[in-house]
């Protein structure tokens, strides 16, 4: 199987192989017709698979190594990107990208986790998207700057989790995330959050408090990774498929619970199969959300943001 084919895409991989084999033969109209036929079959099989993805399959798509990163979206939708580094306290965390950019000619701050994409060196450079305290502190520092100069914040969420290591604990990962939650709640500029990959628990939430949360169709957003949940509750991490089911971590689930505002559709086969199209779909949703929120007067916007989180989960309470 090609490395970027997921396990449940096996039927597609088989057909792709057939096309490859045909491509070796001398070019004839008959060969071309056969290839076209196979390509059409791939499209219909793919559409069929992606129409009924299970929660665990969505986890795999959300974690796909070629899934577009925050910097892919920046280069496709933004101009004049100027990356800002460092938390002015300890170091610069490459798992968290922050920078000024223009979106539709309007200056904004972009904040986002970065997993490193498909390249191993990049992955290590970015610590696989596991941000440390300095990453959250850099994010907060730049967001305060956006507030100071009255610029909107666009946050791209894609992380397995905050880094669970010794140095994270030593330098206060809890405090770093906690402070972001509190300060983002009252940050006096429009904040749009886009969960476009993996919304990994507190590490995701640490840059995800805002006026609107948009979520990509095949992204996930969860309190704990399915493997971790399975290990604790089933005492067997191989029960991850059931855990993924039980955790209700898909975009439609979150929309149903009122935790996100809108699902951004993705190309059939996932954003990684056509990043350009994925970006265009994201663009439409982002433009709309940003113009809605920017039109609000500051006090009303902050009150609405408060009430938005205030209401979360209340349907799960019987009084």
């Amino acid at each position: 199987m090609p490395p970027d084919t997921l396990e449940f895409e096996e039927p597609i991989a088989v057909l792709l192989k057939e096309i490859d084999a045909l491509a070796m033969l001398p070019q004839t109209p008959a060969r071309q017709a056969e290839i076209d036929g196979l390509a059409r079959r791939i499209e219909s099989i793919r559409a069929d698979i992606y129409r009924r993805l299970t929660p665990w399959q969505r986890v795999l798509v959300a974690r796909h190594p070629n899934r577009p990163t925050v910097l892919d979206y920046v280069s496709l939708l933004f101009t004049d990107f100027t990356e800002i580094s460092g938390d002015r306290r300890f170091s610069d965390d490459r798992a968290m990208v922050t920078g000024f950019a223009r979106y539709k000619d309007e200056p904004v701050l972009v904040v986002g986790h970065h997993k490193g994409g498909g390249d191993t060196k990049q992955k290590i450079f970015r610590n696989f998207g596991y941000a440390k305290p300095e990453g959250y502190r850099k994010a907060l520092r730049t967001m305060k700057m956006a507030e100071k100069f009255g610029r909107a914040v666009i946050a791209f969420v894609d992380t397995p989790a905050a880094y669970p290591g010794v140095e994270s604990e030593e330098r206060g990962i809890s405090e770093a995330i906690a402070l972001n939650l509190r300060e983002m709640a009252v940050l006096d500029v429009p904040v749009i959050v886009i969960v476009h990959g993996e919304g990994g628990s507190g590490g995701a939430l640490g840059i995800a408090v805002g006026d609107r949360t948009l979520m990509s169709e095949f992204a996930i957003y969860s309190v704990i990774p399915p493997e971790g949940c399975a290990a604790i509750l089933w005492r067997d991490s191989n029960r991850k498929i059931e855990a993924a089911e039980a955790l209700k971590l898909t975009a439609p689930d979150l929309l149903g619970f009122g935790l996100i505002d809108r699902i951004i559709p993705e190309p059939v086969g996932g954003a990684h199969t056509n990043p350009g199209q994925a970006a265009a779909m994201l663009d439409a949703a982002l433009t709309e959300a940003l113009s809605e929120v920017s039109a609000m007067e500051s006090g009303a916007r902050l009150e609405a943001r408060y009430q938005r989180f205030r209401a979360m989960g209340n349907a799960g309470i019987t009084e």
Partner: peptide, 10 residues
Amino acid sequence: GALSLMQMAK
């Protein structure tokens, strides 16, 4: 699930 997660922000 995510409902618990959001209580942190709330």
